[in-house]
Design a protein around this nucleic acid. Structure first.
Ligand SMILES: [Mn+2]
Ligand SMILES: [Mn+2]
Ligand SMILES: [Zn+2]
Ligand SMILES: [Zn+2]
Lengths: 130, 130
DNA sequence: CCAATAAATTAGAACGAATCTAAACTGTTG
DNA sequence: CAACAGTTTAGATTCGTTCTAATTTATTGG
């Protein structure tokens, strides 16, 4: 973790180390700022909400996290940096990955003049079956 | 317009009629609540911001508008109900349509148990060329 | 037409997510 | 270890959106 932070040009402070452990210590995950803050409190890591926001944004800028926009109103952060897409279940707010391998998006038009394609994002919105 | 509102089960009030004219009177468009409110003021249509929000949400529920989520923090409403997708230019906030004809999304995995696919949304994020 | 009634609109308060401020604290360097 | 830049923090602030409760308006059936 220490290495990872240093490589990203971020001082390995207590808070950043603890949050990096929560975020990257297990498998891949999606979190909101409030969720991560609650989790830190549970683990008795003393960290303010302001620092949670600072850290998530710094990690994102450093390329350690991605942001996923599925719902206006709150931001999700994603530790999975692989090429992948998302299911989003409106009813429950559940956000899950699916691999981009096997998925083909064909026939995307040319980008408007002066711009180029940064990313093609696919969001599969789910509803309850029935 | 009157018909359209009645068919949607919405009383054709002054405000709804005026807003429907702004939204559906010309070609297709994308608006935020604040944008529509500013436009109404310019046209000297007396309508409160609360009514703008009420109306946009009622129109969306009635299927007269779609919501487009490209940025956490503000909602976009879209008068284009055809099957289409979006370019989003992060730098400028410009949101533009492209037709779904010619676009193929293949290999979308099966929906998780208990759910079914509602919509497959493609967002092409743009950056400045260079 | 005119009540009577239900529905819609409104100003302003409230809310939730996110950012900002400026003061205290901590990691790094020499 | 001293000095300094970088970081954290509580609390204030901002912004988009929703809520509240009082007023106004549309509809209906007499
Ligand atoms: Mn929403
Ligand atoms: Mn954003
Ligand atoms: Zn993901
Ligand atoms: Zn559109």
């Amino acid at each position: 973790m220490l290495e990872r932070l240093r490589d990203a040009g971020l001082r390995p402070t207590r808070q950043r180390l603890a949050l990096a452990r929560l975020l990257f210590g297990g498998g891949n995950r999606h979190v909101t700022a409030e969720q991560l803050h609650a989790e830190a409190r549970r683990e008795e890591i003393p960290v303010s909400l302001a620092t949670i926001y600072n850290t998530l944004n710094q990690f994102r800028k450093a390329g350690l996290l991605r942001e996923v926009v599925v719902d206006s109103g709150r931001s999700w952060f994603d530790t999975n940096l692989e090429n992948h897409h998302h299911f989003f279940h409106e009813a429950t707010g559940a956000l899950t990955d699916f691999e981009a391998e096997g998925l083909a998006v064909e026939g995307v038009p040319r980008a408007p003049a002066g711009t180029e394609i940064d990313r093609v994002e696919v969001i599969v919105r789910l509803r309850d079956a029935g």
